[in-house]
Design a protein around this nucleic acid. Sequence first.
DNA 1: TTGAAAGCGCTAACAG
DNA 2: CTGTTAGCGCTTTCAA
Lengths: 324, 324
Amino acid sequence: MRQRMPTIHDVAREAGVAASTVSRAFSNPRRVNVHTRQHIVAVAERLGYRPNPLARALPSGRTTTIGLLLPDVTNPFFFGIIRGAERQANAAGYTLILMDTEESPEVETHNVERLGRAVDGFVLASSRQSEADIRAAAGRNAVVLINKQVAGVPSVVIDNTEGTRQVVEHLASLGHRSLTYLSGPPASWSNANRWAALRESAGRLGMRVTRIGPFSPTVSGGAAAADAAIGRGATAVVAFNDMLAIGTLRRFAERGWRVPSDISVVGYDDIFGADFCSPPLTTLASPREDCGRTAIDLLLRGGRGEVVLPSHLVVRGSTGFVTG
Amino acid sequence: MRQRMPTIHDVAREAGVAASTVSRAFSNPRRVNVHTRQHIVAVAERLGYRPNPLARALPSGRTTTIGLLLPDVTNPFFFGIIRGAERQANAAGYTLILMDTEESPEVETHNVERLGRAVDGFVLASSRQSEADIRAAAGRNAVVLINKQVAGVPSVVIDNTEGTRQVVEHLASLGHRSLTYLSGPPASWSNANRWAALRESAGRLGMRVTRIGPFSPTVSGGAAAADAAIGRGATAVVAFNDMLAIGTLRRFAERGWRVPSDISVVGYDDIFGADFCSPPLTTLASPREDCGRTAIDLLLRGGRGEVVLPSHLVVRGSTGFVTG
DNA sequence: TTGAAAGCGCTAACAG
DNA sequence: CTGTTAGCGCTTTCAA
């Protein structure tokens, strides 16, 4: 029942001009006489003409579309990134295609290959692909990485080094002498990065650090992590991210451990929920909307650098003085 | 520096066949001799050929792409819907374009018009458009609505009527005789629907109901709602959604009101966080992943009905007996 | 400033 | 089963 959509040719005929002129009137208005243009626009409006984005992209090669790939759309961590990217893309007249790779490197690689010609570029957030695959993708398309660095590929990451130092000093100032890191996905660049930063900062302050895991970076993963942490003797745990940290909070409560009097808990990211869980979570907050915005910006400007965005510690109720 | 991508013509020449045969080998493999096909595929592989989705869509009119529009990507309510839609779309070989309309009817209408030819159909979740605009969109594209009903347009909604009855009966069984509804966005179909269901159920049980608001359906909106609710005399509040409910929880605590002994709080949706806020929230849980899945399914099958998905009450710590 | 014409990469009849 | 031939709707030289 759907009627055929009018094309530039319909508009051209009706307006008494050539199709190419109609084309110009929309894609390059300044190369058309003001009056002709107004006339064309009026006719187009009357006919209900809408440019076909696909037909427009085919000869020009410009799709005005950007692909944003991430490992898990339901992870609150990515909300800010999505929103920042969305806003920046829209502001520049681009459409954002969002794709959930469900933590699978294969799915990610496959989609990057499949969509390569359908987008002007990709933003890969927390990419699970190998460096080789990322380089290959960057050879075919414009690519910007978020929270991962690969030599030669532009990226924007959230600072872990300095932020983690703040975390460790905060714990030290509360009297903690040892801490346990609850690690996240092995393929995660942030996970490796945070652990390295933790070792270094703790080492410098003479604190003992151990690592357990990996755990699924989810609330339910936190239960396993808490169980594993109990009996490790540490007075503080630093979780790979807030999801994991919130999960440990619940499990500690279930098992009768008091946070922070029995054990302190720190997370990363300051996601939705970190401020209203019980107790509210001490965490390293990251400027995620900025992150998404900057990535799109870099992509559209053809930037080449490695941007590092600062994070900052938010102290809430889950950390406290060592007692006993 | 980016090299020209090989096309079917390159593959055809290299394989010694016609371009149309290469085309068939990929889009309609069974209409090509097995050996020719294998040969073509091998050559294509060697050349690194990838079909161009745009070029493919132009003559056929099929884009294998679906647009999912929603008012706020950062609202946890939509996570499940996104994931369900994503999965179902991918399973059917479709790409999902996700678009955040930021609560603006204009942005929504504009994007529907702009992307009309670039997708095979739209899923409009919690659409903020007028019925007229939705009908217009449905005249041009395949459209499925989520959480909104418009005569003649297929939709999938989450049941409020029966679910709300459960909420009211739960409160009644705890001794509550009056409740206050904290309303959400005026343009929201669910908001109207929930309020209507609440009045009816409460009326039947002889409970007093009042409505205040509208409030922004966010955690910060909950603070305003809590302040407004205090002094209303109701022993229970039912919030438009969990975000709002969680916000009231915090505000009540700040003002020294105990939940549930001073006041009971109920939300809608059972979003991420509803189980670990303090106290954990009693809420009407909705099958959101199902919802997203069903909507895509309906769209792809060209279904015409109005699907209603059941919700169910989850009782947690935020509701209790009336005291005093 | 405008028109004519040649594609963009692919699909889809229509022959053979 | 395969090749030939038209386009899909638009952009983009190249002339006029």
